[in-house]
Design a protein around this nucleic acid. Structure first.
Lengths: 210, 210
DNA sequence: GCAAAAATGGACCCGCAAGTCCAAACTCCG
DNA sequence: CGGAGTTTGGACTTGCGGGTCCATTTTTGC
């Protein structure tokens, strides 16, 4: 299935993907014309359709995949090591920093709901991203439970689902209002809540660990 | 500024707006052609451009306004009367019910971030909606604080911001995964958190109310 | 160094959907 | 009834942008 591309070919292909991604981040999916991508990457139509025979749809899918991966990579190594409260806070800070910097330019926006029908597979990419993201958070919560830092009776899956939703909503509101306040509030209050529940439970059980 | 439309004219205009709204809900903004709206509403191009001289953009703006208002209306009378825990739960139930029914068809999706540049004013409509929505929640929290049901030291604005973000994210995840779990988790955990903080504070102050 | 395969440039095609225009039909009021 | 203003229908124009095609150049493998 993997087509035979030379080294140079792969490089060109990659250049097109990252160029398209940048263009989309800056101007939005529906504002980007193939011409824009060609201009920015210094390529021609012939090349684009050579590397993406299905045309725009295939390119969008590749971009989506690329950007989805990037979202998680940007959170490492924190996201995979939520093993102490300071790690959680570092993760929190990274998220704020990352989205503050990204501002209103969300590459994956516009791939949701029925809007994303334009690139059928793209929807799946987003779903996959959410799934991986939530799993990482769940794992983090479980870790904290194993050390007693979070109460054992917390439903890790459910808590992770809520936190992920909060983050997504925070980013969404950043996109529409330009302010990061919502994201900050969600992260701080949710994490605090996980901590205080631990404290409350520990207190009522009369036996803190440590 | 208000153009002179006869009764019949107003009716036609309204028919076009609601028809367009329905079409968009079903098929997504970028899939809807003016022709589709005309077909559904039994109108002609002449009429559409008669009532919306600026064309599609003006129509989209009208639709956005219409749908934004609907979002809040659908939450009444609960949203404006968050004065007891049972009222909060009723609101929660209404939200779940509403979005479960709406499913993957979000009329305002696609108006966010730079995607929404297609209709410059539409962005403002969404921002306005969020603002009104959050204010209502803040007000509800304040109400509960005034009766002592929520601890006075809770920052109502911040808590409302977090809850709103959670809701938005929950809906977003509903759009991309088709499952309502995230929205449920956010609502339940956030509301629970508001309640337990009240309990905790009351307990530690040694004086519960009622 | 040579043939086969891959990479590149860019002119051209073509369909779609927004927007224009105007003539015909209503309707409102005196 | 008459005519000014409003509403309606729909044919036509137009520009944009995705996709096709092929000739040319470069690279690869032997």
């Amino acid at each position: 299935m993997t087509r035979a591309f030379t080294r140079k070919g792969e490089a060109t292909r990659a250049r097109i993907v990252t160029g398209a991604a940048a263009e989309i981040r800056e101007r939005g999916v529906d504002e980007v014309r193939l011409e824009d991508v060609l201009a920015r990457t210094g390529t021609s139509k012939g090349q684009l359709f050579h590397y993406f025979p299905e045309g725009k749809e295939e390119l969008l899918l590749a971009v989506a995949q690329h950007e989805a991966d990037q979202v998680l990579i940007d959170q490492e190594p924190m996201l995979s090591n939520l093993t102490s409260w300071s790690a959680w806070l570092a993760w929190r800070d990274r998220l704020i920093e990352r989205y503050l910097e990204q501002g209103v330019k969300c590459p994956l926006n516009g791939l949701l709901g029925q809007t994303g029908r334009r690139a059928p597979g793209a929807q799946a990419v987003v779903t996959g991203l959410m799934w991986r993201w939530q799993n990482a958070i769940t794992e983090g919560i479980r870790q904290m439970q194993s050390t007693g830092d979070i109460a054992a009776d917390v439903d890790a899956d459910r808590a992770a689902a809520a936190l992920l939703a909060g983050i997504q909503g925070g980013v969404l509101l950043l996109l529409s209002t330009g302010k990061i306040d919502h994201l900050e509030a969600v992260l701080d209050l949710t994490i605090d809540s996980l901590r205080s529940e631990a404290r409350a439970t520990a207190a009522q059980e009369g036996n803190a660990n440590g």
